[in-house]
């Protein structure tokens, strides 16, 4: 130990500024914690599911098989990302408070905003990492399956003497459109964006909630309403809507909840639509806006929270 405390005074006098390094430290601690809680065991389940969905149903036609593989795996990706986002966010903040870990962190020169952002980024890194791994697994299986199915189909057509160049071209076209394309990764990106928005909502709620269960239940409610927000909004924008009460009720719901259906491009991607850049920009932009505003609101609520 040094002979005299050397903590420089000048440091103490200056304002503590936002520090990306500190946020990163907090984020990495969150990731380590979650990883060591074996939360990523889900990945193994996912891989089994992907292999199962890819190879188990060989009775149906090639296009159906590829479609099924994509629907099942992308569906489970959505469930994974949202459940992990909500549950880990809802657990971490109250746990830090209960264990007094929060006291030791905030009694260091750490602004509360840095702490919040660190937690959020940590959870998002975990979800993002998980999605990347699962995307890679899905891509691999899809590619394998695609080549196998195409060869099978052509072989069968040859056997039945139906292998005209046009028919082969059509099979190739169908399999290619249903197989591995960039669109698949954009669908995964959209899933990530949706999970990001939901996680931020969970963070906001956990900064005011008194229990983990409350945060989880309310976040899932908002998630469900968020998927129907477009309907509520369109109902509100109808010109000849009668009744102030119903108008006010729809307005409140539409104002509070984010529109999560905006990120539901998975179905279109599964059916083989091409994702244009405009759609990627739109989704990314609106997600960034939600996250910024919700994080700011969370900060307002958390900065004065009595611990």
């Amino acid at each position: 130990m040094s002979d005299a405390p050397t903590s420089p005074n000048t440091e103490a006098q200056t304002r503590v500024r936002f520090s990306p390094r500190r946020v990163w430290t907090l984020a990495m601690a969150t990731v380590t914690q979650l990883v060591r809680m074996k939360i990523l065991a889900f990945l193994v389940v996912f891989c089994l599911l992907a292999v199962g969905a890819g190879f188990a149903f060989s009775v149906i036609n090639p296009e159906q098989q590829l479609n099924l593989l994509k629907s099942v795996t992308l569906g489970s990706l959505q469930i994974f990302s949202i459940v992990i986002g909500v549950v880990s966010t809802a657990l971490l903040l109250p746990k830090d408070m209960e264990d007094r870990t929060l006291y030791t962190i905030l009694s260091k020169p750490v602004p509360r905003f840095d702490y919040l952002l660190g937690k959020l980024i940590g959870v998002l890194l975990l979800i993002g990492g998980g999605l990347i791994v699962m995307d890679a697994v899905l891509s691999l299986i899809l590619w394998l399956r695609q080549s196998m199915l195409f060869e099978d189909a052509v072989a069968r057509m040859q056997m039945e003497k139906l292998d005209s160049p046009e028919a082969v071209a059509q099979v190739r076209e169908i399999v290619a459109r249903q197989g591995l394309t960039w669109n698949l990764h954009w669908a995964v990106w959209a899933i990530f964006l949706k999970a990001t928005v939901v996680t931020t909502v969970a963070l906001l709620l956990s900064s005011i909630a008194s229990s983990t269960l409350f945060t989880i239940v309310i976040t899932f409610c908002i998630t469900i309403i968020g998927h129907g927000e477009a309907l509520i909004r369109e109902f509100f924008f109808q010109p000849n809507l009668s009744g102030m009460a119903s108008r006010a009720a729809t307005l409140v719901l539409a104002v509070i909840c984010p529109d999560l259906a905006q990120f539901d491009i998975v179905d279109s991607v599964v059916s083989g639509e091409i994702v244009p850049w405009g759609a990627v920009y739109d989704m990314t932009g609106i997600a960034a806006l939600y996250v910024t505003v919700y994080l700011f609101v969370t900060h307002l609520l958390f900065v004065e929270k009595e611990l």
């Binding site: 099924l68 099942v72 899933i191 469900i224 309403i225 998927h227 990120f263 998975v266 599964v270």
Partner: peptide, 16 residues
């Protein structure tokens, strides 16, 4: 509308 809202982005999965 109800179906869409309650299933969220999982309609593809349900359809499957």
């Amino acid at each position: 509308a109800g179906l869409a809202a309650s299933l969220g982005g999982l309609r593809g999965l349900a359809a499957c």
